[in-house]
């Protein structure tokens, strides 16, 4: 059945207490903390979901959410996470990857060995594709190692978009016309599809950063890009995510955070590496200084 995009039903009122219950629930499930300062944003998204599920009240919506039979938790997370980004965002970190991180990492590797890179959260794919493009364009040893790029997000809708690899002009704004012609196919006047070979070179899979059980599937990474997600977390969730990310890294592996984020206040497990292009955190070579 076709359903027009709901704008929320004006007759449904959600109290502050109900919003708090919802935020508690979301926090327990995802680690994401939505404070009162984001109340307007929460109300809008919540009203959309209440309308979309045909619920008559917050109570009946919350019952659907907790029953876990309708995938509503997934849809709600999708509505609450922001997925707009673009190719070559914060490219100083990509530069740091090829000028400092990879040259350091490969001193421990033989030619032909795997280099594992994890983009989490990968949103709609711009970041993992940017990493792959940057490597092919800027790293002279790109064919000397077996580079594996894994890309994960908690938002299944974003992952679906990432695997479809269809982008508007805004997402490509930082790429030169030459790069666009090498890695994209224009679909119509407005959209571009990522090269199928590039798409198939990246493994997309769902992941929840604060779910230790889930995170066990992700091990042995040499490098993790985890940008602009920890800002959604409170201190406790940040610490859990930090420890999970630590476990996902190889000893000596690096993690890059967003420009406004720091690992130093989250976890003392990592070494801070100040490179000319970026500040990056490293899992120490030896594990014995784990606190």
């Amino acid at each position: 059945m076709a359903r027009s995009e709901p704008a929320g039903r004006p007759d449904i009122r959600v109290s502050q207490e109900e919003v708090r219950r919802l935020c508690d629930f979301l926090y327990r499930r995802t680690g994401m903390l939505f404070s009162d300062s984001k109340r307007y944003y929460i109300d809008r998204r919540l009203a959309e979901r209440i309308a979309a599920t045909g619920s008559s009240s917050f109570q009946s919506y919350f019952a659907i959410l907790r029953s876990e039979t309708e995938h509503e938790i997934e849809y709600l997370i999708n509505a609450f996470t922001v997925n707009e980004t673009y190719f070559y965002r914060e490219d100083h970190q990509l530069r740091c990857m090829t000028s400092e991180l990879l040259p350091n990492l490969v001193t421990r590797k033989r030619a032909g060995e795997s280099i594992r890179i994890w983009s989490v959260p990968c949103s709609t794919g711009e970041e993992p594709y940017s990493i792959a493009i940057w490597l092919m364009e800027n790293w002279k040893d790109v064919d000397l190692y077996n580079i594996e790029i894994v890309a994960s997000d908690i938002d299944t809708r974003a992952l679906k978009a990432a695997t479809e690899g269809l982008y508007g002009k805004r997402a490509l704004i930082r790429l030169s016309p030459n790069l666009i012609s090498r890695y994209f196919e224009p679909v119509d006047g407005e959209q571009y599809r990522i090269d199928p070979g590039l798409r198939n070179s990246i493994q997309f899979t769902q992941a929840n950063l604060i779910d230790a059980q889930d995170m066990r599937r992700f091990r042995g990474f040499d490098m993790i890009f985890c940008r602009n997600v920890l800002i959604y977390f409170d201190d406790a969730s940040r610490r859990i995510a930090g420890e999970n990310l630590y476990d996902s890294l190889q000893p000596g592996g690096y993690i890059c955070l967003g420009h406004s984020e720091t690992m130093s206040r989250i976890s003392s497990l990592f070494h801070v590496c100040r490179f000319p292009d970026a500040i990056v955190y490293q899992r120490p070579e030896a594990d014995d200084d784990r606190k």
Partner: peptide
């Protein structure tokens, strides 16, 4: 390696 194939292909 899919990335190597892509690099050579390009």
């Amino acid at each position: 390696s899919s990335l190597v194939r892509l690099y050579y292909r390009n």
